[in-house]
């Protein structure tokens, strides 16, 4: 059986099915021409160089936050605290950047990246450790930690770390224009995209070609066997959680160092939650995370055009996302059955 063809055909079928469902909703409830809507979405997401850059900019943070779910998932852990990690990473990176603001830009950026990754890594490693050594369910603890992270951020940003001149948008002091990491030459897209691509590639190589990566697969497949083989499960849990957290922490650092220039409540705008979706849709495969993030970024980029040209509410895009996700997830059942003539009919 041609599995490559299947791997493309199944998601495409799912996308088509979602388009039909969404089109029906548009045509019969909103009285909008679905073809016009899809044309606009294409225009807004991929129709021009500007649209492509818009899409890639939106995809960048998702690639990094998705890894926070994807890496621990390798061991069978379900981490959904990505949003909190991004927040923690962003605030820590900003604080570190401010502390060393006088140093050469490269040093400041490096310190910020290390601080953000370390904070994020520890944050999720904590959830992993609770799971491993106290038996606390990591899904709920990472979710709780997200709410705690956001409260801490608000406390620091509006209290001890607040720059009084940030007035109506309480923020930390700026890290300084000279210390910003800027955009990829010739584009509008910041370096966070490259960080994400490199991180995904590294994770893939690690999982595919190293003994540790293989050990993780064994643990994910069957923890009891792994223990019998003498694998130190705890160490791998901490490693996977720490690495995933570091990726999302880096996403927070990028938000501060490439976009906002300071840390504030705009760190918590949902990149983390979207990252969970990306990871599940990509079936936690590091390389699949990239196209899924771009798809999601494209939907986000085109949403504005639907609002402006067709007078659709913002929620229309959320509905479409929901339909696409459910359809793609449901379509997994078709693998191995699609090309049998009986099943297709």
């Amino acid at each position: 059986m041609n599995t490559t063809l299947e791997r493309i055909a199944v998601p495409v079928l799912a996308l088509l099915a979602s388009a039909v469902l969404f089109g029906l909703l548009l045509a019969f409830y909103a009285h909008v021409d679905p073809l016009e809507a899809f044309g606009l979405m294409y225009e807004g997401a991929f129709g021009s160089w500007f649209s492509w850059q818009n899409t890639l900019t939106r995809a960048a943070p998702l690639i990094l936050t998705a890894l926070c779910t994807a890496l621990p998932a390798r061991l069978g852990l379900v981490i959904i605290g990505n949003e909190g990690v991004l927040v923690v990473g962003g605030v820590t990176a900003a604080a570190a950047g401010i502390a060393v603001a006088g140093a050469p830009p490269l040093v400041v950026q490096l310190v910020m990246a290390i601080a953000g990754m370390a904070a994020g890594g520890l944050w999720i490693a904590f959830a992993g450790a609770l799971r491993q050594y106290r038996g606390v369910n990591e899904t709920i603890s990472s979710l709780l930690l997200t709410y705690i992270a956001i409260a801490l951020m608000n406390h620091f940003v509006e209290g001890p770390l607040r720059d009084p001149s940030s007035l109506n948008k309480p923020s930390t002091w700026p890290i300084g224009d000279a210390n910003m990491i800027g955009t990829i030459p010739g584009t509008d897209v910041h370096w966070g995209l490259v960080f994400g691509l490199v991180a995904c590639l590294l994770c893939y190589l690690f999982q595919r070609f190293t003994t540790w990566g293989f050990a993780m697969e064994v643990i994910g497949g069957n923890p009891k066997t792994a223990r019998m083989m003498g694998l130190n499960v705890g160490r791998y849990v901490l490693l996977a959680c720490g690495a995933g957290g570091a990726a999302a922490g880096l996403a927070g650092m990028v938000e501060v160092a490439a976009i906002q220039g300071r840390a504030n409540a705009s760190l918590a705008v949902g990149y983390g939650y979207s990252g969970i979706l990306v990871s599940f849709l990509a079936r936690h495969h590091p390389l699949a995370i990239v196209p899924v993030s771009i798809l999601l970024g494209g939907i986000g980029a085109s949403g504005g055009l639907l609002q402006r040209r067709l007078d659709l509410p913002d929620a229309a895009v959320v509905v479409l996302q929901g339909i696409i996700f459910v359809a793609i997830l449901a379509s997994e059942t078709l693998y191995g059955r699609l090309l049998k003539p009986k099943e297709v009919a």
Partner: peptide, 10 residues
Amino acid sequence: EEEKVPETVS
């Protein structure tokens, strides 16, 4: 008009 635009690069 565009609504619900967060205060980020969006």
